[in-house]
Amino acid sequence: MELRTLHYYLAVTQYHTISRAAKALHISQPALSRQLSDLEKNWAFSCSSVVLVQ
C-alpha cells in the first residue's frame, strides 16, 4: 500500500463524498474510486461504512 492511498482515504473522510475529495485532490472521481476499491480489497473492509460512521 502507498501512503498516497491513505491520503486519498483521509480526504474522503474529510470531504464526506468521493466527488468532493476527488476535486480537492485534483484527480478524477473514477481514479479515486479505484484507489479506494483497491484499499478495501487489500485490507478487507468497506471504506463507505467507515466514512458513514464518522
Score class of each variant (00 low, 15 high):
29 Q>W: 07
30 P>E: 13
16 H>P: 00
23 K>S: 11
2 E>M: 05
11 A>M: 12
7 H>L: 14
26 H>L: 08
53 V>K: 15
8 Y>A: 10
36 L>S: 04
20 R>C: 01
4 R>S: 10
21 A>L: 02
26 H>R: 15
35 Q>T: 08
48 S>C: 03
26 H>S: 15
4 R>I: 11
2 E>K: 11
51 V>L: 06
27 I>T: 14
26 H>V: 08
15 Y>C: 03
44 A>P: 00
11 A>W: 09
3 L>S: 06
31 A>T: 13
23 K>P: 00
8 Y>T: 02
7 H>D: 15
33 S>Q: 13
19 S>R: 08
15 Y>N: 04
29 Q>F: 05
46 S>M: 01
16 H>R: 13
5 T>G: 01
4 R>M: 11
15 Y>G: 03
40 E>F: 06
40 E>R: 01
37 S>V: 03
33 S>D: 07
50 V>F: 11
49 S>E: 13
43 W>F: 09
11 A>E: 13
18 I>F: 01
45 F>G: 04
41 K>H: 00
45 F>N: 01
21 A>T: 02
41 K>V: 02
37 S>N: 10
31 A>F: 04
20 R>K: 14
41 K>T: 05
48 S>N: 10
15 Y>H: 15
24 A>D: 09
18 I>V: 12
27 I>W: 04
31 A>C: 09
33 S>W: 02
27 I>C: 08
23 K>I: 05
